[in-house]
Design a protein around this nucleic acid. Sequence first.
DNA 1: GCAGTCAGACAACGTGGTTGTCTATTACCG
DNA 2: CGGTAATAGACAACCACGTTGTCTGACTGC
Lengths: 143, 143
Amino acid sequence: MDTHPGAKLARLLLAGFTTLVDEVVVELEREGHPGVTATHAFALDAIDAGAQSASELGRSLGVSKQAAAKTIATLEELSYLDRRADPQDARRKHLTVTDRGHEMMAIGAGAFDAYRTRLAGQVGILALHSLEKVLRVLTTQRV
Amino acid sequence: MDTHPGAKLARLLLAGFTTLVDEVVVELEREGHPGVTATHAFALDAIDAGAQSASELGRSLGVSKQAAAKTIATLEELSYLDRRADPQDARRKHLTVTDRGHEMMAIGAGAFDAYRTRLAGQVGILALHSLEKVLRVLTTQRV
DNA sequence: GCAGTCAGACAACGTGGTTGTCTATTACCG
DNA sequence: CGGTAATAGACAACCACGTTGTCTGACTGC
């Protein structure tokens, strides 16, 4: 590890992500939402936050509109969203998150937060804030 | 973000990973190793570190032996490894990293390390060490 | 020496992306 | 007003990277 600290850092970041996400997926399954992935939760979040169509969702997630459409089809299948004709624009299908969708989002967000809180309890809130700050630098600045 | 700090943490971890990896992939391409992904580099690393067969590589990467075999096929295609019959065990195909493979590993590790060093320059080595410690807790302990 | 285990090949499939093409609809501008 | 450009979404083909299942051939241990 001391011989490849950079690569080790990359592995740690990925492992941290998957650990957190796996935990949340398990919790969602336990709470009556099997078959949900982190991708689904993030997409539903983006829709609830304002992405009103497949094209918009794609832009907001940074993927193609076709990929977004597939995610939407899955979410509709799982009854997490409704798709209706947009009265203002006949090209569009307007998206709204269902009650079940909101419930799933709440459980997911709660599980993420609970995990983060437990982690803060182990390493200290200051260390966690520091980590988040470093990651913001890493992801937003030309390092 | 303050409303969903846990989910935000997950996004930061993933974004941090992809930022780092994308940087390294670009550097590898620039240095004469196009078409290489982080998966390839990690697999080659595991092979060089002792994984001597597809089954072993799969175990060491935590994937099925079939998935490992596919990665190996790609790496062989790209001239990063040789596969020869094992004289001791006719079932096995012995794996060795080629010179070009070692060169690619060196460039990749160098790029990872360089990025980490630049990051340390921006946020301080102490913050980086703290981050790595938190991630080790996150990934190795029952939080 | 035979039963069980292990390595690897092959096939079928799933997921989550991609590009490309097509039609219908809307927006813009001369 | 009308024609052209841009946009939304559907559909198809494809790709990367993983999965499970099945099969054969080769070792291992009792």
